[in-house]
């Protein structure tokens, strides 16, 4: 591979950190879901890169499974956001603190 694997790792690290920053700092639940998608994508990049690096197909198969799980997770998450908006008229997570200890 012409690209050194460490650079791929640093790239996915940057993507994961940006996603984590979004989860920690944003209060809009939709943006938080998008940040989670960014983090899953960063993990997927590692799977694909090492599948190529180690000449092993398992990484790519696992990547397909990750994408399927991400699709299900987004569907459920957005349904929760919709239910939240219907019941509480907000999607800002710091305004929903009834179950906070």
């Amino acid at each position: 591979m012409p690209v050194p694997p460490s650079h791929v790792l640093i790239f996915s690290l940057l993507l994961f950190s940006i996603g984590m920053l979004g989860v920690l700092t944003r209060r809009n639940a939709i943006i938080i879901l998008m940040s989670i998608e960014l983090m899953m994508n960063a993990a997927n990049i590692n799977f694909i890169a090492f599948s190529r690096q180690l000449n092993n197909l398992t990484g790519q198969v696992f990547g397909v499974f990750t994408i399927a799980v991400a699709a299900g997770e987004v569907a459920i998450g957005l349904a929760v956001v919709l239910a939240l908006y219907r019941n509480r008229d907000t999607i800002y997570v710091d305004e929903v603190h009834v179950m906070k200890g």
Partner: peptide
């Protein structure tokens, strides 16, 4: 990285389906 199938799934599922949902 020669993972054409995953790339196609990424475009179809993420850029297609998940984005429309969002």
């Amino acid at each position: 990285f020669e993972a054409e199938f995953v790339a196609a799934v990424q475009v179809l599922v993420y850029a297609g389906g998940i984005m429309v949902l969002f």
